[in-house]
């Protein structure tokens, strides 16, 4: 099967021909399989946001290609417009983009723009609301009367309602407390499972990406610096710190254990760490 997204030799230069000219993406290539959960990490200004906007055709590459299901999204106007819907993009602080009088109408904005009929729109709005845990009563209230966390879920539902095959989220948990974070991440995971959707998530929380993703793309200075499984990425602790990032605390603990002379694997989640320590202690422990 073809990869759902394939990016080859992608370059993007902002404000060509002005003193503000700036290369935001430098020869990026990677591909994404259906159902993958990918984390994108990198410091502010490393090109993450620009990259995201390339993947759904909001920005046109200066050179290089973005293939969606094997087709260049810029080869035909129709394909470009379709890319908007097939690759859903949730911006940072999406709650600031709500505008409708009711939650229902705000979620329906995307499906309406797709030109779907009333019945289909209704089905999608209700399903999307279900994915993010909004009750039918909440659909009728003004989005501006909801709490911050709820507003964000409405905004995410607005993108989910387009039923994108690829869902891209830019820091979906920024500013939320641990419970709010877990809720949003749970919603995303539910959608992925239900639709075998591909998820790409930009995050500054190394703990979150470590726990959830299958693969990490590390952006640094407009380039794709690493493309590997979390275990591998987080084994490059020093490089990551130099890039303005960090590694999960448990990974740091295990790097220290290695220094102490223990033969431990690279771990990056608490579950893995627990398993690894138990293995070292020799299986069954009775206290």
């Amino acid at each position: 099967m073809k990869p759902i997204l394939e990016v080859s030799n992608l370059n993007y230069i902002y404000s060509v021909g002005t003193p503000f000219e700036h290369k935001a993406l430098d020869n990026i290539s990677f591909s994404v399989e259906r159902g993958e959960f990918i984390g994108i990490i990198g410091h502010t200004g490393s090109g993450k946001s620009t990259l995201m906007q390339q993947l759904n055709g909001l920005l046109k590459p200066t050179s290089g290609q973005v293939l969606l299901d094997g087709e260049d999204i810029w080869s035909d106007k129709k394909l470009t417009r379709q890319a908007r819907f097939r690759v859903g993009l949730v911006f940072q602080y999406p709650e600031y983009q709500l505008f409708e009088e009711t939650v229902y109408r705000d979620i329906a904005f995307g499906p309406k723009n797709m030109g779907l009929n009333e019945q289909e729109i209704d089905r999608r709005v209700r399903e999307a609301a279900g994915f993010v845990g909004l009750t039918p009563e909440q659909l009728e209230v003004s989005p501006f009367d909801l709490s911050g966390g709820q507003k964000r879920r409405v905004a995410i539902a607005g993108v989910i309602a387009m039923e994108p095959e690829v869902l891209i989220l830019d820091e979906p948990t920024a500013g939320l407390d641990p419970v709010g974070r877990a809720e949003i991440l749970g919603n995303v995971e539910t959608y992925r499972r239900a639709r075998n959707a591909t998820i790409m998530m930009v995050s500054h929380s190394m703990e979150d990406v470590a726990r959830l993703t299958d693969r990490l793309l590390v952006m640094n200075g407009s380039k794709l610096a690493m493309d590997a499984a979390p275990a591998q990425v987080f084994s490059h602790a020093e490089e990551l710190v130099q890039m303005g990032l960090n590694i999960p605390q448990v990974t740091q603990v295990f790097l220290n254990l290695k220094k102490l002379g223990l033969d431990v694997a690279n771990v990056y989640t608490i579950e893995q760490a627990v398993a690894e320590i138990k293995r070292l202690r020799g299986g069954a422990v009775n206290a």
Partner: peptide, 9 residues
């Protein structure tokens, strides 16, 4: 630090 990346934090 809610709106910052790890370096900013």
């Amino acid at each position: 630090t809610a709106m910052l990346d790890p370096r900013g934090r």
